[in-house]
Nucleic acid binder design. Structure first.
Lengths: 136, 136
DNA sequence: ATAAACCATGGACTATAGGCCACGGTCAAA
DNA sequence: TTTGACCGTGGCCTATAGTCCATGGTTTAT
């Protein structure tokens, strides 16, 4: 099938699919015509695009996904390998969460020190809390 | 002072400071020389750069920081306002954490279904778990 | 005077994941 | 045949936060 039909079938834009082709995530074969450069997309590409969508929903980057797809092509991938990749991604996610938690706790700590907000009429440039935030 | 001294004082690279100038986060005045375009950085810029570094450690983006700095210039900022900004950032962080948790739970759910890994010699292309992940 | 350090500016580059546009040829339907 | 949809390609753009490089003039120290 051509890209338009594929786009409808997997619910991705043609531009997105072309982007994946350019990034090497999928590698469709040329069609049979000697008059045009149209690519022929098969059920293989459908499956791969379904895989990409699913992996993205797990938080994998396109680069990571491309790596896995290549391993599948070379028949290197198996359950244990995929599982390890997934567990590594979980570890990575936990790190990101920890970083975000640190941001959050920094903010909350700063807010907690703000026990007595300025009176509404306090001159703003002299507000001790604002100045404190400015590290002055 | 000139940018080299400022760079040392606030422990940021000259390129970073120039970048902030270009982005409009800080607005140093021109120096007094009629022979060059050197900018004059004062204690005001030192304070602002300290603020930027601090706000970044809370997870604020440069754009958000620029907004706050501008409000300080216009004397619009006060404790309540800053506090609300901080609380909004906390809410935003919580959303990001929730998204990451969703990724994580999706992965763990998928792994949990993988109760019986393929035997090491299982033909890889037929491994039911891999095929399942491929949404086949 | 000379060389090195300094300053400023502009532009390209990195990473990520697309989206948009122009252009030109092909294909299908009217 | 004509028109419109389709396809492919290349390049530019978005957002973010810098980093690097080239260029050219200024300042400082020898």
């Amino acid at each position: 099938m051509l890209i338009g039909q594929l786009s409808k079938e997997v619910n991705l834009s043609k531009d997105t699919i072309r982007f994946y082709v350019k990034q090497g995530l999928i590698t469709p074969k040329p069609g049979n015509s000697e008059y045009n450069n149209y690519k022929e997309y098969t059920e293989r590409e459908v499956q791969q695009l379904r895989f990409i969508t699913k992996a993205k929903s797990f938080g994998f980057t396109l680069k990571e996904i491309a790596g896995t797809l290549e391993e599948m092509e070379q028949e290197k991938a198996n359950c244990v390998h995929l599982k390890n990749k997934a567990l590594n991604k979980v570890i990575e996610i936990d790190k990101k969460i920890a970083e975000l938690q640190k941001y959050k706790s920094n903010i909350l700590k700063e807010i907690k020190q703000d026990q007595s907000p300025c009176a509404p009429m306090q001159p703003k440039s002299n507000c001790p809390r604002v100045l404190s935030f400015f590290s002055i």
